[in-house]
């Protein structure tokens, strides 16, 4: 094939790069930015399917502050993050440390870790729902077989147990995921460092605190940030397992807002999801600040 060399207009800087970016920018503008801005706008309106749309300023936001349901779901969401994220990261780190050793069956173990993550969360939640089931559930069966309980427990019936019933599936699904990320970080640590430490007679706990953890810190911080943001918007397992119950005790902010959208109250739903966004943003900024501060301090 014959082509004119070099002198093509395409190689000159100019508008050309934007043609390559256009599909990306268009999709993001239409299906992410526009909906977010739309939600932001709607949050200052009364906007229900039945009574139409009218501007009401900050009324939704002020209403949220006086709404017990909002405070309940805010408390639950923060507690959920506070309990599930550390569990996920610690368990994930444990799995990663295990897989970082030269094990004969490492590939097999690594595949096992991918499975909980690959199964759709809403689907595995159905299995968890059955595990917690009062009559047929695996949880009651195991505990009764071990003689730990005499009568079956209604796991989804009390606030505290229902809380853990939605935490556990989330930990199950995301701890393995964290482990895979951590494992990549661990494998980037030069082996000589460990060998040197061993020559110096360091105990393995000392090696962990002095070498592994500091070198893994960037990955840990990224994982902490992403897991926190992700856990803040938890929705799938809660919708399926508890539906937010009992009595709203496990309603996350995502579910709280979603329920308003689903019932046609767009104004208040939009306002709640803006609160959720602002909380995620504030937490992210705090993390980034703290990470930078810690990096400067060392």
């Amino acid at each position: 094939m014959r082509r004119r060399p070099r002198a093509r207009a395409g190689w000159q800087p100019g508008l050309r790069p934007w043609w390559f970016l256009l599909p990306l920018l268009l999709l993001i503008a239409l299906f992410i930015l526009l909906p977010v801005l739309g939600t932001f706008g709607t949050s200052f309106h009364e906007d229900t399917a039945f009574r139409g749309r009218s501007f009401n300023g900050l009324a939704n936001y002020l209403h949220a502050l006086r709404d017990a349901g909002f405070w309940q779901s805010l408390t639950f969401t923060l507690l959920f993050v506070l309990v599930s994220v550390p569990l996920e990261l610690i368990l994930g780190l444990g799995f990663a440390l295990l897989l970082d050793r030269a094990l004969p069956w490492r590939p097999l173990l690594r595949v096992c870790l991918l499975i909980p993550w690959a199964i759709p969360a809403a689907i595995s939640a159905r299995t968890w729902e059955l595990i917690y089931n009062y009559q047929y559930g695996l949880a009651n069966y195991i505990l009764r077989s071990l003689g730990l309980i005499d009568a079956p427990i209604n796991w989804l019936g009390s606030d505290v147990s229902a809380f853990f019933c939605v935490v556990i599936p989330d930990v199950w699904r995301t701890a393995p995921f964290a482990a895979i990320i951590f494992l990549a970080g661990l494998q980037a640590i030069p082996r000589q460092l460990y060998a040197q430490a061993r020559v110096d007679g360091a105990h393995f706990l000392q090696v962990f605190w002095r070498i592994t953890l500091p070198l893994l810190r960037p990955v840990l911080i990224v994982a902490l940030l992403f897991r926190t943001i992700d856990a803040l918007r938890v929705f799938d397992p809660i919708y399926v397992i508890t539906g937010g119950g009992p009595g709203g005790a496990t309603t996350s902010l995502s579910l709280f807002a979603y329920d308003y959208f689903a019932s046609g109250d767009f104004g208040y739903g939009a306002c709640i999801s803006m609160w959720l966004f602002v909380i995620a943003l504030v937490l992210a900024l705090i993390y980034v600040r703290a990470a930078r501060f810690a990096a400067e301090a060392t």
């Binding site: 930015l33 977010v36 943001i229 918007r233 966004f277 995620a280």
Partner: peptide, 12 residues
């Protein structure tokens, strides 16, 4: 952009 919770998009 991945900061935005899904629920802040779904209504609109």
């Amino acid at each position: 952009l991945s900061m935005f919770p899904q629920v802040s998009l779904v209504g609109h």
